[in-house]
Amino acid sequence: MTSVTSPLAGRVIGLAAVPDPVFSGAMVGPGTAIDPVREPSVAVSPVDGVVVSLHPHAFVVLDSEDHGVLTHLGIDTVQLNGAGFELLVAKGDTVTRGQGVVRWNPVDVEAAGKSPVCPVVALDASADALSGLVEDGEVKSGDALFGWE
C-alpha cells in the first residue's frame, strides 16, 4: 500500500469543496484537498518516486507501485504562466517523500484572483482503492492524507 502524505501545511477541505468541477467531481481521480497556510512555502513530494509530470502549478510523482499522485497548486493557476512558482526539481528526477518540488506563495495566487486550494489526487484510481482518507482538519507538511491499495 502507498501512503500519501500532505505536500503542504493547511486545512484539509476534501475534494467536494474544491471550486473546480473537474476536481470536485473526482474526474481525474479520488483524493482530498488542502487550503494552504497563507505564507511563502515549498510544496513537497507526497510519496517516494519519479517526477513524471512537472509544471509550475502542478506535478505528478509516480511511486514504485505505479501510483501517480497529482499535487495541483491552486485552481486555474495555469493561467499565471508560471509567475510566482519556482521549480526545485526536474521532470524525470527521483524524489523522496518530503523533498521540495515547487516553491510558491498562496498569498500571491489569491492576489492574482485565483483560489490557492490544492487538490491531492490519486490519478486513475477508484474511490474504494483509498483508505483512511482525511477530508477535514489541520495538517502539517508530511501528515498522512490517505492510503492507496
Results as ranks from 00 to 15, higher is better:
A17P: 02
A33Y: 04
V18M: 05
V109F: 04
L15T: 09
G84E: 06
V42P: 02
A144S: 13
P30A: 10
V28K: 03
D93F: 07
V60F: 02
V101F: 05
K140E: 10
I13M: 02
G98T: 11
E65M: 13
I13F: 01
L73F: 08
T94D: 10
L62T: 14
V78C: 04
H67C: 07
P106E: 03
P46M: 07
V121Q: 00
S53A: 15
E138T: 15
G113I: 13
V37A: 14
P56V: 13
A127R: 13
G31I: 04
V102D: 00
P7W: 06
W104C: 03
L70N: 12
S24A: 15
G68S: 07
W104V: 11
P7A: 02
A16K: 12
P119I: 13
V95H: 05
I13H: 00
H72Y: 06
G10H: 05
D63W: 07
A16V: 14
H57G: 01
L70C: 10
D128W: 08
V22C: 04
S131C: 05
Q99M: 15
V121E: 00
N81I: 02
Q99P: 04
V37I: 15
D20N: 13
D66W: 12
V121T: 12
V52W: 03
S45I: 03
P36W: 09
M27K: 09
V12D: 00
P56C: 11
D143W: 12
H57L: 03
L15E: 01
E149G: 13
V121N: 00
G49N: 05
P21Q: 13
G92S: 12
E110L: 11
G10L: 05
G29V: 09
K140F: 03
P30Q: 07
L8E: 02
L133R: 04
G29C: 03
S24T: 11
A122Y: 02
V22S: 05
V134K: 11
P21V: 15
W148P: 02
L70W: 13
A125M: 11
K140Q: 12
P119F: 10
G142R: 08
G82N: 06
V95R: 03
A122I: 11
G147Q: 01
G147C: 00
I13P: 01
V12T: 11
L73D: 04
T2D: 03
T5A: 12
L8T: 14
V117G: 00
V50M: 06
E86A: 14
D66Y: 11
T96W: 05
G10C: 12
R11T: 15
G113S: 09
V28F: 11
D143L: 14
Q99N: 11
S45Y: 03
V50E: 10
S6L: 03
D76C: 02
P7Y: 05
A111Q: 15
V18K: 01
